Amino acid sequence: MAGAGDVRERLTPVGGRAVRSLRVSSAGSVGAADPLVVILPGLGLPFYTLPTARSIVQRGLDCEVLDLPGFGSARPRPTRPNIHAIGLAAAGWVRAQASDRPVVVLGHSTGSQAALTAALALAGERSSYALVMAGPTFAPTQRRLVPLAAVTPFAYRDDGPREVDPVEIRNGRMGIVEMLHSGMRDAPEQRIAGLTAPLTVTSGFHDSYTPTAWLDTLTTSAVAAASTRTSLLGGSHNNLFTHPDELADLVVLAAADAVAWR
């Protein structure tokens, strides 16, 4: 994956460990003060997020996909496969690589919960950043295995097997299960009350993991956020792969939010 012509692997020291990221090359020139988009993938599986990363870059923004907790390579993992550990590592990466520029933290699926942790960890340290929670999982009615299993067949109705990299699945193994359990124990509708940054929540129209009522709960619970936006886009759960241009257009709006929030 990192060998693709437009994708460059980068290693950043964070907390004494190396965090691997995938940076999509830009055809144009992006200034050091321009917004940077940081993507946290669901279940720690970076591959399916690359179409959206490419679409973001085509719109003139920098973008990097963080390989957290490290399933994208055989390198030592920089953090445990836990949404809060991933979020704290992501916040550390932002401090190291983007201390002086606007940032959009885009998390998808369980990555959206990790992105919320990152956004909360950055609060009080900086402004000029925004949070995008795409396809946020584990609505309160889905935090047990039986209800979750019941909606799973409908969550991926517009998705297919080509979105999955078998190497990442093999590298993740039981770590993926640990991530699922950590996500199911989370209550983001409670934690999000402490968010002060601009917030965007979004999902695919056919994503049964993320009913509209769940998006509404998250936005109305973000009582301290500088602004909130809700957007229903095409596709189902993995619409970062199937509808990258729609996601990228939404991220452009979030980048403007980050720049405006001082």
Rank of each mutant, 00 (worst) to 15 (best):
I86F: 08
Y156F: 15
L22K: 13
P188T: 01
R162T: 12
L116M: 07
R126N: 08
L240Q: 13
A258L: 07
R80Y: 00
A115T: 06
D62W: 04
V37T: 12
A74K: 11
L61G: 11
L120S: 04
R20T: 13
V7T: 12
G44I: 02
Y156H: 13
R75Y: 03
V14Y: 11
H243L: 07
V14H: 03
G16P: 04
G44V: 06
A118E: 10
L247I: 09
R23V: 09
L199T: 09
L199V: 08
A222D: 13
V24E: 08
A119F: 05
T137D: 02
Q113K: 00
D186Q: 10
R10Q: 15
S73R: 00
H181S: 09
S73Y: 04
P161E: 08
L180R: 13
V167E: 15
A254D: 07
L66N: 02
N82L: 11
G31R: 14
F205S: 11
G72T: 04
V259W: 07
M179C: 07
A248N: 10
Y156G: 05
A222V: 11
V24I: 15
T52R: 07
G60L: 01
S25W: 02
V177N: 07
L131Q: 01
D159G: 11
G111Y: 01
A96F: 10
E189M: 02
T137K: 05
